[in-house]
Amino acid sequence: MEGDIVQMGAYIGAGLACTGMGGAAVGVGHVVGNFLSGALRNPSAAGGQIATMFIGIAFSEALGIFSFLVALLLMFAV
């Protein structure tokens, strides 16, 4: 019984942790959207900033991956 409650809590926690990925999605969308609006204003400067955009995407996506990892840990490792 006690184990079941722990398991239930772990599953609920995993589901809650997955909401963090939505934040990462918003963040990545924000980065790319702002890059695009800037790039359309000044297309000549856009080419040099693609690497910077990918770095930004990587940083904001990493946090989503962290929340996914927490979910996985709760599902499989706790």
Binding site: A58, F59, E61, A62, I65, F66, F68, L69, L72
Partner: peptide
Amino acid sequence: VSHSIRLAGNMMAGHA
């Protein structure tokens, strides 16, 4: 930490 987990997490997530 983020450097390694980013790569492993992405690969693991997609395959899972």
